[in-house]
Design a protein around this nucleic acid. Structure first.
Lengths: 102, 102
DNA sequence: AGAATACGTAAGGAATATCTAACGCGTCAA
DNA sequence: TTGACGCGTTAGATATTCCTTACGTATTCT
């Protein structure tokens, strides 16, 4: 079971959905249009994304509007920054090493 | 088949491996130590990461040293930035809209 | 009311991913 | 050269993911 933001990003269709939502709120059926999978499959992806918290849902009559959930990818951002930090520090150590041997 | 950096990040063991490598080059067996899976499984993760390009390998005798591949996660960084851009722009439009209706 | 619309959900199957156990192959040390 | 070490690969089992088809449930529209 995909249970975090990393898992959400692992599927190309889900990334495409996020990109489309980056342009603003969209209806479920509009989101499904043009994708290489059925409307049902799209719905399942959206359900997953909702559970993980990368999108939000708003119901209006028989329609459902989806939008990006702010901070939905915070987990990913934070992780990448942490890795960058580690790496930057290791490059720094490398630099000191080179300086020392110069 | 996991074939891109997003897929690499989708597995907690692979993220752990990247974090450890953030502290510098490591031998295969050192990387495997402490993980909840066998050495064999770790080796398979490393092979995958090597194929995708998130880690690099250096052989020395019977040992293999792994390290982070610079730009290995560039694909992910770029994608996140693009999404941020879209989102920033949509917030901007929202701001204009609010201004207009004020 | 009856039909059409907008969606979600369930069931079932095919494709992937992931793990362990067993084995192979160099390399190093005695 | 014999054996231990470091590590990858294969085979095969199990788990997970992802998709489609069929169906259910509210809403609108006529």
């Amino acid at each position: 079971m995909v249970e975090d933001a990393f898992g959400v990003l692992a599927h190309p269709v889900r990334r495409e959905l996020l990109v489309r939502l980056g342009q603003g709120e969209q209806r479920a059926s509009d989101l499904a249009r043009g994708l290489p999978i059925s409307r049902s499959a799209t719905s399942q992806h959206l359900r997953l994304m909702l559970a993980v918290g990368t999108v939000a849902e708003r119901r209006e009559g028989r329609e459902r509007y989806y939008s990006l959930e702010r901070d939905g990818l915070a987990e990913v951002d934070a992780w990448l920054e942490r890795l960058d930090g580690f790496w930057a520090r290791s490059l720094e150590r490398l630099g000191e090493h080179l300086d020392a041997s110069a």
